[in-house]
């Protein structure tokens, strides 16, 4: 039950992400894609800084006791943006999204299956293959 609620929450967060993309695209056309992306990261960083100041318990110190590679998540976001801005004018939005989504889904299943990046191992099973097939079919239909 708790699992279902978490999935629902992530589903809604994903819906929000589409709204973000819908806002970001036109904004990027007007002020430049890097500036538009900067607005997301900057406002997000400032909001979360506030949240951190008022959070009931803070463990900022623990952040910097982790191995360095665990701190690289923030580098990957801009990498994604650069790929997106390079590819979209060349192959169009549709193709770009299909490529990104395929890479994303395949990598996420592989990460779980092999337990990469220190994640708990979750083997590929029939249900997961079915889910992948349904996403690909949905992409093709859209």
């Amino acid at each position: 039950m708790r699992h279902a609620l978490i999935l629902l929450g992530v589903l809604m967060a994903g819906m929000g992400l589409s709204v973000e993309a819908g806002l970001l695209g036109p904004l990027g056309e007007q002020v430049g894609h890097l500036s538009a992306t900067l607005s997301i990261f900057m406002v997000g960083a400032l909001l979360l800084s506030l949240a951190l100041v008022f959070a009931p318990k803070r463990q900022l110190g623990a952040l910097f006791k982790q191995p360095r590679w665990l701190l690289t998540g923030g580098i990957l976001g801009p990498v994604y943006v650069i790929v997106l801005t390079l590819a979209t004018p060349l192959v169009g939005v549709g193709m770009t999204m299909v490529g990104i989504l395929c890479g994303q889904v395949a990598a996420s299943v592989a990460i779980d299956h092999f337990g990469w990046l220190g994640s708990e191992q979750r083997k590929v099973d029939g249900y997961r293959i079915g889910a992948l097939a349904m996403i690909l079919a949905a992409l093709w239909l859209m």
Binding site: G73, L76, Y80, V83, G99, G103, A107, I111, L117
Partner: peptide, 8 residues
């Protein structure tokens, strides 16, 4: 690019 998102 997509794999990078999953890794992130």
């Amino acid at each position: 690019g997509g794999a990078v998102l999953a890794a992130q």
